Amino acid sequence: MSKVMISPNKYMQGVGALKEIGKQICAFGSKAFVTGGRTAFSQTKDIIAASCAEAGIECVFEGFGGECSQAEIQRLKSTAEANGANVIVGVGGGKVLDTAKAVAYHMQLPVIIVPTIAATDAPCSALAVIYTPEGVFESYLVLPKNPDLVLVDPQIIAKAPVRLLVSGMGDALATWFEADACYRSNANNIPGGKSTAAALNLARLCYDILIEYGFQAKLAAERGVATPALERVVEANTLLSGLGFESSGLAAAHAVHNGLTVLEATHHAYHGEKVAFGTLVQLVLENRSKEQINEVLEFCVSVGLPVTLAEIGVTEIKHDDIMKVAQAACADGETIYNEYVPVNPEIVYSAILAADAIGTAFRAK
């Protein structure tokens, strides 16, 4: 089977980059349908409107309903069609960006992605994660192409809540370990091929940047400033993690995340926070070395990522609940089967409890 690597058509990152969005939209259309959440619009709407007016682009702004569900995708699609849009722009976090990608896909239009947080690797991917209106994972929508443009302004991201940046580090943390697992098992990546050496090395670079600059980036974000360390972590969370997971593959960490969504107690935890705990579960499944596990634990604790079930909301451990998580993680078609070690609900159940015990013991030091 051939090796396949995919990526956004264009990635643009820089302080003040959002002011150039009007010029960038010109390459794709003349009437933009822009969707975003209330907070994202409060930070960006005036800048986008001014830049588009200067470039002669007509804009229609529509608020995002809060969940990347089939119903919300259809609602926004109908509104965009009614307004005669010929380019879709998504502004905000992972769920609105995935929704914008899905809307553009169903309308067969170009899509421009403007993340205002660095909380997930959603911006660059040819993938939309679909949830029920209640927030339970439903399915993956694999798209035929990546976004046409991903425009990232670290100055805006630096003003976002620090927890969101840290959550993005949790999502990015899984990238290398899942890529490595897929390579060892000879699993297919998201576009259906095998990983390239470039994708594997980008996944590893993502991990190395987090370990080297993650804590510094968090401190910068706490002061609301875009330092070189923060810019590197924004690139790792957004671009490197996106390229790494998509062109190398997903494995146990994201499957465990999906499993955790069946427990209502975890719904307050962000995607990357659950993925971080899922990464620890994956390391236990793979029987990784004490040194490797400790490096991950030290990183997570330093930046504030969860390493126990209690930290993602599961304060009372019940056999039935943990087994539900394990069974959901092992559902047909889940990415956990890309692992190079045996997996089944009983094995995953044990790994979840062992990971929680390891994290609890580390916290107690």
Rank of each mutant, 00 (worst) to 15 (best):
L240V: 10
E246R: 14
L283G: 08
C68K: 02
A255I: 03
K45W: 00
I73V: 14
G170R: 08
Q108D: 13
P123H: 07
V307C: 07
Y183E: 13
V129N: 01
A252R: 12
K10R: 15
Q292C: 12
A276S: 10
E72D: 03
C68P: 03
V281M: 10
W176F: 11
E334T: 13
Y11S: 12
V343L: 02
V103I: 11
Q282F: 07
L109W: 02
V91N: 05
H271E: 07
Y183P: 08
R223Q: 11
G333D: 01
P147I: 03
E62Y: 12
N338W: 03
G22S: 01
V129A: 02
I352H: 09
T196K: 05
C330F: 13
L173N: 00
T266H: 03
G16C: 04
S30P: 09
V343E: 01
L173F: 03
E67R: 11
A351Q: 13
E231R: 13
K101S: 09
M12V: 13
E212I: 05
G56K: 12
Q327E: 15
N189Q: 08
R232I: 00
I347Y: 09
Y337K: 14
A172L: 05
A354D: 15
Y105E: 13
G36I: 04
G37I: 03
D332K: 12
A158K: 12
A221K: 07
I112W: 04
S350C: 11
L240T: 11
C330I: 07
D153W: 01
H268F: 15
D98G: 13
V152G: 09
E222Q: 15
M323P: 04
G249C: 08
F61K: 05
D208R: 06
T335K: 10
L250R: 07
